[in-house]
Design a protein around this nucleic acid. Sequence first.
DNA 1: AACGCAAAAACTGTATACGAATATTTCCTG
DNA 2: CAGGAAATATTCGTATACAGTTTTTGCGTT
Lengths: 244, 244
Amino acid sequence: MKSSTTSSAPPGTSVQIHDVLMARIQNGEVDPQERLVDTAVATEFGVSRMPARDALMRLAHEGYLEQTTKGFVLPRIDHQEILEIFDLRRLLEPRAAAMAAQNLSEEAFGHLETALKNARQAMTDGEREKLFRACEIFRNGWINAVPNVSLRKAVQRYMTQVQAVRMMTFADPANHPVIVDGNTGLLEAFRRRDAVAAADRILRFVFDGETAYLAAHAAEEMNQSNEPRTATAAGKDTTLTGPR
Amino acid sequence: MKSSTTSSAPPGTSVQIHDVLMARIQNGEVDPQERLVDTAVATEFGVSRMPARDALMRLAHEGYLEQTTKGFVLPRIDHQEILEIFDLRRLLEPRAAAMAAQNLSEEAFGHLETALKNARQAMTDGEREKLFRACEIFRNGWINAVPNVSLRKAVQRYMTQVQAVRMMTFADPANHPVIVDGNTGLLEAFRRRDAVAAADRILRFVFDGETAYLAAHAAEEMNQSNEPRTATAAGKDTTLTGPR
DNA sequence: AACGCAAAAACTGTATACGAATATTTCCTG
DNA sequence: CAGGAAATATTCGTATACAGTTTTTGCGTT
């Protein structure tokens, strides 16, 4: 199948559907409980099941969706896998950040600065969604500056875990300064084009992210174990409940 | 699509086709010039184009094949990408080997020993194909002992590069002892369950592999640039020529 | 009210067919 | 003999349809 990033021919319907659905997934427009069924997607895009199915299967292969017998759903990365991927990220991202530090153009650096400024402003204003988005732009910005394309793709491959973790850790506003300050340190290293500092900063950042995730996960498990006894007392966010 | 390794239901035809084709690719039974066309695959397996197409597309997503307008072919990793993946492998494989050293069962270690013994014997006998196969078994054996599933999959993902490099470097018998001795050092580290030594050994091994690849690549480029003037004099293996 | 069973609905995998795009081959002209 | 154009062949993308599997819903009985 032609990739939308490499094909010189105008993309076919299945590629277009893939791109639209991927953008929705990445922008958080797909509900975790939602099921993407190929007949429904086909109807929405006015095509037959085949191109819809191709697009959904491709998204599943890329890790953005998971196939079930009742449609495609957002992947549920379990706790163990999230920890494993933190391990992996610590292997990949320091070198990636070091390479980015040496490779960043002035223009690209300017974009990082803007994104971080937006993140800090959104944190101050308490606008969680804008903060989420600005952090995403910041991360994508420096990753795109990594000249080793295979390393860049390897880092990008774990975006699903990064997003899953963020959805948990962003729920607690206490984590917001950790993220923004971590990114500020990274930006400083980029400003100095200091590869060693960039590697160190992102390593710490990923450790901090894991710490925040573990705290959020422990809180979630505590909430779940307390559920039967406090259900009438608590007006709890239902997204924290339900089967794993 | 259900993965053949995770599904509890009997695999459907497209999964079966996928598995057979993948085994062929990994066993070197697919010619680099060969094109896998979905109509031909369908005929071979006695099914319609749809499951054949699904299997081929899945193999393409997994990096085992590349889609062209005239069928699926073995991927051609270019020189630059091979070097990038060497970089990546040095990030991933030391930790993978360290974890394997700590996790290897006696049974698994025994299999590694057998594979290495077979490799040494094949090298002595000058049986290149058996040597290739034994090295493959050795490598797969220790990778399968890595408890971090995500790291294991990440390492396995670059098998295509490993195979492409081997096809080049195995052509020169002078490289055979480098490979066997490197694996012997790694086995020694595994025997001692010495994580640090295992990491060091595989790091050296990947560096040695890159050195051998660069030498083979330089020789290939020299052959290509000399082709017009020495064609009548040289009885050259045609696999070294042709467009990239 | 709960449980079990059967039927209906929902969804997927695969079959066949058609049209479009691309590559290859053949023929004609200079 | 070589090059270009046209025709043919090959392959893919997508459309529609059918059958099987799984899930959900409804009804009856306890």
